[in-house]
Write a protein that binds this DNA or RNA. Structure first.
Lengths: 341, 341
DNA sequence: GTTAGCACTCTCACACACGAAGTGCTAATG
DNA sequence: CATTAGCACTTCGTGTGTGAGAGTGCTAAC
């Protein structure tokens, strides 16, 4: 990455900030004013031509102003941007909004997502806590009717999952006892990744005629273990896609993409750094070629558990949003960690 | 409603069907062909002029073909439309798709909604079973940690709700016993609409120092009772809004409307008839002025419990979709009723 | 009541001109 | 050699005009 003269950096930053604010290509005269007439518009034009040459700017056409390129945004985010700090009262507002959640992670993330989408006017995406290394802390069987029961599984990292199971024959108290014994011996304290269908099958083999009741129950537990490993997604503010004119062209493609869980999960899972900013084609999926994504992980206890972030146009207020998302992820992590006790 | 000559009815029906199929205004010549040249185009023009006069058709401009008006669609749906019957294999396809749901109504409706949105290319909306007259069948307390527990409530009509509750002090087995005693005496068999905050308060007053643990638990139960009365919404295929050019103009308004739960719930709750078709401004909300809604109730046991249906453009294939939605609602009702046993 | 014929209306697509915005280049300047 | 003033040039967007196409409404005849 070549180093730019201080003036060129300033010009690049001003162009990006102006473009983010107005959405209009920025001309040399506007910039001259923004720089306090310290240099002439011709000088700026020369610099701008260089910045185009280097790939940081784009001319929509010969006689339009300049628009940041994907590379330009990247340079800005990495080197030029001065992050806004969140005001104290804004921090408090976020905290109080999130306070008073009962203890269900999904509820918290739903709330956080709705805050985030309103804050950013973008689509907010979050993933609920998941942990493929989590240990099974507790399994409970809640009888609902003679042949249905709810299975509740609590794992480390505060992950809670439940589902309803139907069996072929009656779930007697005897059956429940056997179930709890099996849990005690084989499941509790075990890692969720050890519980899979083969494991269940070997277990079930020794149960004699109880197989028909027990098998659905144990398969249910296995399903839950599986869902502990995989994450649930939350979306908020999807209508915001239509807010951004630059996205509305392929709004349908984008909308459709959002509804395909697999790539989105991949998107959230792939990130290594605590906070990831991907601009335009830096994103792994071609549907996001005109979008930017900002995602932050949150940690429960000391483990990365999930992510929250946004999908928006590349023309987005990085300087403001990045700190907000970072902060929000921090609060989520703290709240989820608190409930672990 | 004035009676139309047989030929005018035929013309109206043909115009609507052609317009639904192509989206293009229909001219007299096209109609002449469609009617097998049994009459001349001039005759048809005269009839069309009358139909415009009566308000069943609209001319976009003097020299365009005719387009159905809202009134025209209404006349068609009420008098002219010949409903397609669902093919046997289509019925089977829907059934097998829905089979194998575990017993959670929400899961079933999610599935049904996704089928419906794919089937119709519209936004599918469904409401989970709710019943303000439901009786409490069962309440279970599932301890999760020393100060958190999951409360599970099962009501008649197969409605199942659960939530996590945090308390100030420890939930001992004693506390659990007291809780179950209270359930036994005051809650089980009682109508969910009798359980409200004042009721909880009088109950809690006599508990002495157990108040601090018990109060959140009982309030949790009250919350669940409340959620039995109110319905949860499911949306599917929201991106389909952008599929219909006639809706994409105010797509944002519509999207936004969909995310406001209150009016949508009102929409689903308001309907009296088992199947309701609302065309354009017949809808109670101005955001739907360019949309049609088709909703069908489903019944669990012998009680109306919820609805499923679609929101789409007024230009929609009523003859095909109405039977589909009716059938789907029937299947849902049956499946939910089965699990009651 | 139905039909043929025809003038009329309106839209759409394309062409063209013109003002606005902003540039690139050249030549002059410190 | 970086900077600047000046100016011709490019491109876009908008408004206007024209002609083809589609479909109508009306009149007069059957």
């Amino acid at each position: 990455m070549p180093t730019l003269s201080e003036r060129k950096q300033k010009i690049l930053a001003l162009i990006i900030e102006s473009y983010i604010a107005t959405g209009e290509p920025v001309g040399s005269k506007t910039l001259q004013n923004a720089m306090g007439n310290s240099v002439s518009s011709a000088t700026i034009r020369n610099d701008m031509a260089d910045l185009v040459e280097l790939g940081y700017l784009i001319q929509p056409h010969t006689s339009a102003g300049r628009v940041p390129s994907q590379l330009g945004y990247r340079y800005y985010v990495d080197n030029l941007m001065t992050k806004y700090e969140l005001g104290h009262e804004e921090q408090e507002r976020i905290k109080t909004w999130l306070q008073g959640y009962s203890g269900e992670p999904d509820q918290l993330l739903e709330k956080a997502g709705s805050i985030l989408s309103e804050l950013t006017n973008c689509v907010a995406v979050s993933s609920s806590p998941s942990d493929s290394e989590a240990l099974i802390k507790r399994v409970e069987l809640v009888p609902l009717s003679s042949k249905t029961a709810m299975v509740v599984l609590l794992a480390t990292s505060g992950i809670l999952k439940s589902m309803v199971v139907r069996t072929e024959s009656e779930i007697t108290t005897q059956i429940a006892e056997v179930f709890y014994n099996i849990m005690q011996t084989y499941f509790l304290g075990n890692s969720v990744s050890n519980i899979d269908i083969p494991f269940i099958q070997t277990l079930v083999a020794s149960l004699g005629d109880k197989v028909f009741v027990m098998s659905p129950l144990l398969c249910g537990v296995a399903d839950l273990c599986n869902s502990v490993k995989s994450t649930d997604l939350h979306f908020n503010g999807q209508s915001n896609i239509l807010n951004h004119s630059e996205l509305s062209l392929d709004a349908f493609e984008l909308m459709d993409f959002l509804h395909r869980e697999v790539p989105i999960k991949a998107l959230l899972t792939a990130q290594r750094k605590p906070l990831t900013v991907s601009i335009g084609e830096e994103n792994a999926f071609k549907e996001l070629r005109n979008s930017s994504t900002i995602f932050s992980k949150y940690t429960v206890g000391d483990r990365d558990s999930g992510s929250i972030g946004i999908i928006g146009p590349t023309r987005i207020d990085y300087a403001r949003l990045i700190p907000s998302i970072k902060y929000l992820a921090g609060v989520i992590g703290n709240l989820l960690t608190e409930t672990l006790e």
